[in-house]
Each structure stands twice: as structure tokens, then as C-alpha cells.
Amino acid sequence: MTAVTSPIRNLLAARTQRTSVSEWLRRPRPALALPRWLLLVLLVALAVALVLIPLVNPSYINLTVTLVMIWTIVGLGLNLLVGFGGQISLGHSAFFAIGAYTVAVGGEAGWLHPFTLIAAGILPFILGYLIGLPALRLKGLQLGLVTLAMAMATPAAIRAFEPITHGSRGIAIDGDPPAWIPLAHDQWVYYLALLVVAIAYVVTRRLARGRLGRSFIAVRDAELVAETLGVDVWQTKTRLFAASAAYAGVAGGLYAMMLEFVGPENFGLMMSISFVTLIVVGGLATVPGAVLGALFIQYVPTFTSSISPSATGATYGIVLILFAFFVPFGLVGLVRGALAPIVARIPGRR
């Protein structure tokens, strides 16, 4: 009898262990309550490190970190829309392209870079608002299909407006700083991206934690209840869509300045898929998740493409499936779960 029950007990124990691991991965976790002194030390150390990176590293490292910051800006805006607002968008590469071409065309006209970046945020905001008025009356899969159509049509639309975009020839951009700023091209774009990502991060945190963030979540979870409580559901959705488009537009402008060239092949469907992967892997409805997701889509595809050129798309697909089923709260949930016991032991006022 003992010989029979022993394998059964081992099987039950293994099953219990697998269940506990699955539950741990799928468990929602609050933000880490760091002591104030530790939070201040980490912020100062991070700020100093980010400021010094372009001064002590070669240009290719500066450009790689700049790309991470550009993806972070896109992730912050898209997470506001999808994570906090509950609206599906698969077409943010279209707004990213609009921002990139705004900077390129403005640069051809002789505009200064800061002004072209401002225009790269304003134009996608206006277009996002106009598109959002009819599109956001759709829900779920229908809205996803409309935005997917935007992403698929973007390269063709760029070629169609050849007098402005130069079609398939693309536009070369002078991404160097003004003569009175003693920085190289990679350092100049890095510091612009650092300034923009810092502003975007602070603004997104304030929106997510404030009254607007609560109204976004209310609209996402229960539209009828939110409308009963006085929230203008359609205006909230439309403004959120427009703000998210502005984030993508500014990021696209920085991307164009970094590459010093834009063409229709830069903004294909794979870019939109990578944006969705960013927020899913990083963690939906979390502000730090945009940073972790940006690190993922920058470095993991680089590694997989060195193995096989076709491995990047497969990696995105496999990772999306795994995170959707087993890690619904993304890398942020894993980091919080791993560090929470350590943080709880650190003395200091939370």
C-alpha cells in the first residue's frame, strides 16, 4: 500500500508546486513601498548616471540608450490608452510616423529641432482627436481592426504624399545640434530624449494617480457607472486617444533625429506589434512597465536576430502568448514579487 501511495503523493506534491508557481506569477502586486531615504538615493543616482552616460560612452551605446528612451515614451502613452483606458490600439506606428515626418519636413523648412518636436506632438494630437471621435465609439475587436488598418496603410500613405514625404526616397535630416552647443549628434539627441522622457514619465504618473487617472479606470471598468457619476465618457476616451498619439508623435520625431533619415520602410506593421509587446511584457496599467518593456523590445530582438533574421517575429509571438497566459501583470509584477520581501526589511519611513 505504501509503495502505491508514494508515487501518488509525489504526483500531488509536484502538482501543488506547479500550481503555487502559477499562482505566484499571476498574483497582482502593489507598487513597492520604498523608504523615502532609499527612494531619494536611487533617484539621485539614476539622474547622475543618465546625465553622465553620453559623456563617457561611445556613440553606439548612446544611440542604443536613446532608443530605449524613445520606446519608453511610446510605451507611456500607449499604456495610458490601453492599460488605464481599456482601448485597444494596434496602429500607433502611424502616429509615430507622423511625428517623424513632421520633424523631417520641418527640418527641411529650416525649423529648429525643439520647435519641430513640439509640432511632432501637436499634429498627432489633433489627428488622434479627429480620428478618435468616430473610432472610439467602436469597442474591442472592432476598434483594434480600425487601428490595425491605420498601421497597415501607413507606408502606402507615405508614398502617396510624395510631394511632401519624397515617397520611397525618404528624407535626410540634419540631426546635429546648433553650432553654439558643444555636443556631438548622439549626445544632442540623447539629452533631448532624456528631457522628453523625464517630462513624459512625471506627467504620466500624475495622470495615473490623480483624478483623471481614476476617471480613465472608471471608463475602462464600467462606462455606465462612470457616466452616471458625471464622467463624459466619449470626451475622456477621445482626449486619451489624442494624448497617447501625441506621445507617439514626439517619440517618432526623436527617432527621426536619431536616424537622420526617414522612409516608409521604417514604419511597418512590425513596429506596431513591437509597441503592443512593449506594454504587455512591461505590465499593463503600470508606469514603470513602460521602461521594462522598452528594455525588452530593444535588447531581446537584437539578441534573437543575431541567431536568426526571422527569429524576432517569432519571439514577439511566443512572448505575447506566454505573458498573456502565465504573467498577466508583466515584468513589473515579477520585479515587485521578487523585491517586496527585501524592501519590507529595509528600515525607514514609507
Score class of each variant (00 low, 15 high):
L269S: 03
R169Y: 11
L52H: 01
P155I: 12
P301W: 04
P163L: 08
P155W: 03
A157Q: 05
V281I: 15
R18F: 10
A100H: 07
A13P: 01
G128K: 06
A242G: 07
L259S: 07
R349K: 14
M152L: 15
Y191F: 14
P264M: 12
L40W: 13
T238K: 03
L76R: 05
R239M: 13
G283E: 08
A104L: 11
L34W: 14
L224C: 00
V225S: 14
A256C: 12
G107D: 13
N10L: 13
I346M: 04
V233E: 01
G337Q: 04
V300Y: 03
L63R: 13
R209C: 02
L295D: 08
Y60I: 09
T116V: 11
Y299P: 03
L334T: 10
E227G: 10
I273D: 00
G110T: 12
G289P: 04
I342C: 04
I158W: 00
F329W: 09
P177I: 05
T286K: 03
A290P: 07
W111M: 14
F84Y: 15
G144K: 01
L38A: 10
A184W: 06
Y201P: 03
V103F: 06
A340D: 15
L32E: 09
R350K: 13
A156G: 02
L192H: 01
P328K: 08
E265C: 00
R27N: 10
S215L: 00
V41D: 01
A256Y: 08
A200S: 13
Y255M: 11
